[in-house]
Amino acid sequence: MQTRESLRSADEEREELENGYLTDFQPRMMDWNASRIFAVKNIRIAIRYPTNVLIWGLLPILWLAPYLLMMTAVAGPGTSEYFSEVSGFSDFLQFAVIGWFIFKYIDASIWSIGNNFRWEQFSGTLEPLFVTPVPRISILLGAAFSDTVQTTISAFILLFTAMALFGVSYTLVAVGPIIVIMLLMIIAFYGFGFMLAGMILVFKDPSVLTELINNAVFTVSPITYPLQVLPAPARFAAYLIPSTIAIVVIRDLAIIGTYDLFLFLQSIALMCGILIFFWAVGIGVFNYGEKWTKERGSMGGF
């Protein structure tokens, strides 16, 4: 039986708790601490499966090599007059491999960030996560960050393996500007990923939706071929993807080593614009998706 003492101490405890936690507790737009904890958790799990990072670095070669083989069959090895004319680069192998490196980030933003809640649901931990007093977007951000760490490792594995396989190399003169552009792109992709996560909450059939979006983005992105071969409307659509400007700039920096300063700053400004746009749209779509599922009560079964 509970004694008077034990009751009192429970009261005190509650008071203490309120002082320490509940009274201070304010709903926040973004809980950075939660993001960090979540990212650490994901990375901890990822470390237990080290082969995954390796496999995800090597598999894309199997998807992308057919393009190069086909280009070789159509134009002969290495280069073609037409290609130099349209793209401004002579070697299409060198052109494509750096594109694949960026492609890893596109792929990750679509498959990993967008589908994160889906994986949590498979492992049965989605609902426990959703009852914590943490903004869901913070959890997603944490997940996105841990994905970036893994993607970066995979992307470098992909880059080095492909460089060795196809015998291409790049210059490191402009490594600083490359990193700046990469960072802007990655952060912009977070917004893109939030948007997809929101859509996946609503559409529930993530594999097909993700596959569709992935294919569409891949098709309009200048990864294996230059933007110039796309019809005008598709070229416009390409610029709506956070990676397009980044690929174009990074490719120039990595192959030629220089870039017009004014054009570079202009690209940075454009990237910042895209970044803000995708974060706004991403958070908006995600919040809408969350509200949508809550209203219909389809969170558990999605």
Binding site: P66, Y67, M70, M71, A73, V74, A75, G76, S80, E81, Y82, F83, E85, V86, S87, F92, F218, T219, T224, Y225, P226, Q228, V229, L230
Partner: peptide, 19 residues
């Protein structure tokens, strides 16, 4: 589509003598 685009980028036309 991406295959066709990649081919177009190097061939420039729907026929190729190398091919």
């Amino acid at each position: 589509l991406p295959m066709l685009l990649a081919g177009t980028a190097v061939a420039g036309s729907p026929t190729s003598s190398v091919f």
